[in-house]
Amino acid sequence: MNVIKVDDEKCVGCKTCYKACWLDVIRWNEETKRPVIAYAEDCVECNFCEISCPTDAIFVNVDYTRQFPSPYIPRVN
């Protein structure tokens, strides 16, 4: 599973990463004004949150070992 890290010190609470995430991985905490990584299992490493952050406060650590369906020959359970 991808691990998404937010540096609360660097974060300025602009909410852009929350808006940028198209798959509802990132939620927003209205009280702390900080992003919450709520559904990391659904992250597809598009990096859009990361490239949109004005202060480089969010980083997506990609897990490339995730299982992929059988590419050619059906895998029967």
């Binding site: 369906p69 059988s70 590419p71 050619y72 059906p74």
Partner: peptide, 11 residues
Amino acid sequence: REIGEIMQPVG
């Protein structure tokens, strides 16, 4: 997961 196993294999 199972949908992937049904839709992905080229076969």
